[in-house]
Design a protein around this nucleic acid. Structure first.
Length: 215
DNA sequence: CGTTGGATTGGCT
DNA sequence: GCCAATCCAACGC
């Protein structure tokens, strides 16, 4: 609780476009501790620090931009510091921060916030009413319905690293960053280890299809 | 505690 | 058609 009430001094450091125009894997851990500010349509303002993120880059098979520009991921190819929101699994939205210089795709998935009910990329978007309408929002615009501010800065000694969650490609990349032992990181509830990848996703679906066909 | 499957829409080959 | 940067409930041991 003390964690997310701490907002750095009164001298607010100004966030710049350059901050995001860096290699994605460098920006990702720097986002930990920064404050996400969401102004709801009704005017209510929600604020909480980012406590878990994942990096996705152009040469990364798990990245939506891996196979080039499409309508869905085109925002990733534009200037950095903007929101990339996508729809997944038929019922969830996920929020990303676009990184890298204009023309180079890259993004950081925000996986958890340091507040109740935001321990997971899908959960935090549901909780904070974030959907496709916020795709392309400028995180530098204080008047936008969604923006970022500098918060507490954490050194490497407070940051843990692991492989990303929910992927079945490029699983070797250690591109998930989170605040060590923070109570609001995802998957903490049952403290289960994420070793149960979908081993033969293809085979499983084929079996499923076959079963349906014979019905 | 570990593992599996269902929900449910739309992006992309 | 296939299946996904998720989540949760329901199993099995």
């Amino acid at each position: 609780m003390l964690d997310y009430l701490v907002v750095k001094g009164t001298t607010k450091e100004k966030l710049t476009r350059e901050f995001f125009a860096r290699p994605t894997v460098e920006v990702a851990p720097d986002l930990l501790g920064m404050i996400l500010v969401r102004t709801l349509p009704g005017g209510e303002v929600l604020r909480a620090p980012i406590v878990e993120v994942e990096a996705y880059t152009q040469d990364d098979p798990a990245c939506h931009a891996y196979r080039g520009v499409t309508e869905r991921c085109r925002i990733m190819f534009g200037p950095p510091g903007f929101a990339y929101v996508y729809f997944i699994y038929g019922m969830y939205f996920c929020l990303n921060v676009v990184t890298e210089v204009d023309g180079t795709p890259g993004a950081v998935l925000i996986r958890a916030l340091g507040t109740e009910g935001c321990d997971g990329p899908g959960k935090l978007c549901r909780q904070w009413d974030i959907d496709r309408s916020l795709n392309g929002t400028d995180f530098l615009d204080c008047n936008a319905p969604l923006h970022l501010e500098f918060g507490t800065k954490y050194g490497a000694e407070h940051i843990s690293i692991s492989e990303r969650i929910g992927l079945n490609v490029a699983t070797e990349r250690q591109w998930r960053f989170f605040l060590t032992d923070h109570p609001h990181v995802s998957g903490k509830k049952s403290s289960r280890k994420q070793a149960s990848k979908r081993r033969v996703a293809k085979g499983v679906s084929q079996v499923k299809t076959a079963r349906l066909k014979t019905k």
